[in-house]
Design a protein around this nucleic acid. Sequence first.
DNA 1: TAGTCTGTTAGACA
DNA 2: CTGTCTAACAGACT
Length: 268
Amino acid sequence: MPELAEVEVARRNVAGWWEGEAAAEVRLLDAKVLKKGSARELEEAMLRPLVAMRRRGKYLWAELEGGHAVMFHFRMTGKITCETTPQPRFARLAWRVDKTGWLTFKDSRRLGHVEVLAPGELERYDALLRMGKEPHDITVDELREAASDRRQLKSALLDQGVVAGVGNIAISELFWRLQLPPEVRCGELSQAQWEALVEEMPRYFDEIIARSMADEIAYMNEAGGENIFEVYGRKGEACPRCEEAIERVKVAGRSTYFCPACQPPVNA
DNA sequence: TAGTCTGTTAGACA
DNA sequence: CTGTCTAACAGACT
């Protein structure tokens, strides 16, 4: 599951499931996922009607009547699904909405978290304050300014302070589309390549979002696990563009999949 | 089996 | 500043 795209799909789904209602019942199934606020505050907040579901980067939050917010971060394995029972496997928090069923925050690895924010705290939420612009809003100049020349482009794009929501999978896919080598440094990109990157980022996310929404409808969530990416997770398979075998390397500490033929090193 | 991999992020360290 | 490693954690894969 992708990054910004997965969270945006979750936002749209949850907004539809929960829209205009208050939860009828809240169950905190694993108290350790609640990183800020008390179980009681969480319950009181969620029992108020939903005002809006919002997203910034990979952060997702619910705004409730009365001014509280409930913040979610999925990290690696978190997700929100709609269930018929309140305690499916890996459920950490569940709330029942009459018209829909049990909305469930699941997280097998328990790296994700939930926070209850009192009125006004959202405006002072550090991760949001430090976050770069969304891929859909950032300009070429803004991106170049945030990414210093010597830094690896991958490292810069993974930095949420540079641009919001880009994750490890998106990097492999974007680099393949733009034919950039995995370890390319920011200073090595031409103006045209910067422009292409700024154009391709929102396009990539829009495509994955559209695809994920369609899959949700087709499979009623709980994806079948088919790899929808061009190169990510496809080591040894043929490049869709040139048939060369896809390789995997570690850059910025994370796996990057690339085609050695159509993404050659800059100095080659 | 045991070891290795994993979509994130913050923080320690060289 | 930069990259690398680790810790959170637990399951899937080789």
